[in-house]
Amino acid sequence: MSHLLDVENLWVKFPTRNGVFDAVRGISFSLGRERLGIVGESGSGKSMTGRAVLQLIRKPGRVEADRMEMNGTDLLGASDKAMRKIRGRHISMIMQDPKYSLNPVMTVGQQIIEALRTHEKVSQAEARKRALEMLDAVAIRDPERVMGLYPHEVSGGMGQRIMIAMMLIPNPEILIADEPTSALDVSVQLQVLEIMDKLVKDRGMGLIFISHDLNLVSKFCDRVVIMYAGRIVEVCEASKLHEAKHPYTQGLLNSVPDLVHPRPRLEVLTRDPAWREAPSVSALL
């Protein structure tokens, strides 16, 4: 039985002058038709995990795993050409800042249409129609006008919604969202996340939501994986995140200043070196 995604014993290694640096150290997880959150601080390897699945780790970095399969298809041995087919068509990724992920010299419309036509044989008119529908689905008013805009002419929140439209239009089975709203203002954050959430649910997709924000993840995911120093320290159901056992997870939760429940001092996380060495918890289904 295979899930949307199965990853076993994944390592991401970067050779440096002082030896090999392991960004991800032997983690295992699977993704069903669910929303899986990956949480951790900078340097925990959470972004590298997302990139490794899509084989987007730049040389001289290396990806190693015992198994990495999407719907039973092997991703590890896939050729560059096969991976290009998989990216976008089957697995899409939304990056942190739309400013850097949209092509500045193409209009929004052109980019969405191109995203669709590289994966599906549709006529220009049909592609345009579907692009308009998609923009409408991400709650963009007046999509006709937005199609003709260049990326610098749209706001951050709208840019990210356009990215979502672009990534979802080929109807992938898996969406990887790497800090999709960190670059946005709080008041647009929720809106963007709700749109993403709705589309993912309606289409029965699997979502990997990578974020540093525990509370956000607990709200928008079904299952949460907490990463520390390249390993998974804890896996729990998102709704039970506040009952998390691991001292790292608890420490993270407690260090967030809370508007409604003030404390004179914030709790400071004392890092136990043992966390680093503890074996990675499996997040396989």
Binding site: E41, S255, V256, P257, L269
Partner: peptide, 8 residues
Amino acid sequence: LDVSVQAE
């Protein structure tokens, strides 16, 4: 900064 560092 990360939340734990933010707290510090």
